[in-house]
Amino acid sequence: MFINNFYIFEPINELKMKDNLTILSYLIWGVVLLGVGALLNDIRDFDTNQFKNFISWAKTADKNEHWWTSKNAIEWSYYAISMALYFFKGYLIYGVFKFTAIIDNVKNGDYFSDNNITLFKKIGSIFITYAVNVFILKAILSYVAVSRFKVGDEFMILVPAGVGLYVLASIFKRAKELKEENELTI
C-alpha cells in the first residue's frame, strides 16, 4: 500500500491495469464468440428439425378448425416466439460486445467520459430489456405449449446486473464531475 503511493510505481500500476484490461477484453471476446456459436447452433437446430416438422404439419392441417384454438395457431405462436427468443439472444450478445468499447476507452486513458456513462446505461438497459422480454415470451410459450413455467436464471441474474450497471454509470458520472471540478480548480 505504502509502496504503491510512490510516484515511481505509477507507470507499473498503469501497465498492470492495461494488462488486466487486455485479459478482460479477450475474455469478453471469448464470451461473445461462444454466444454467437451457441445462437447459430440453436437456429440451425430449429431450422433443420422443428421447422421441417412445422411445414409438413401445415400441409396436413384441418382448415375447418377455428384458427385461434387450432394446432396451426399454436404452431405459428411457437415458431414466432422461438424466433423472438433468438432475436433477444442476439441482442444480449450485442450488449456484452459493447463492453469492449468501454475497455478500449479506458485503455486510452478516457476513464470518466460521457461515452462510458452512456455505454454503461445502454448495456444496463439491454440486460433488463432482454430479461423482461424473455420472461414474457417464455411465459407465453409455456401457456401455448401447456408446459410448466419457471422463472429463468437469466431473469434473476440479468435484472440486478442491469440495475448494477445503471449504478456504475452514476458512479462514473460522479467521478466525471469530480474530475471537472479538479481541472477547473487547477
Binding site: L24, F112, A175, L178
Partner: peptide
C-alpha cells in the same frame, strides 16, 4: 470474468 470486471471497477474507484 466477474473477478476481472470487479478488478476493473476497483481500479476505476482508485482513480476516483
Amino acid at each position: 470474468l466477474i473477478a476481472i470486471f470487479s478488478g476493473f471497477i476497483s481500479a476505476i474507484f482508485k482513480q476516483g
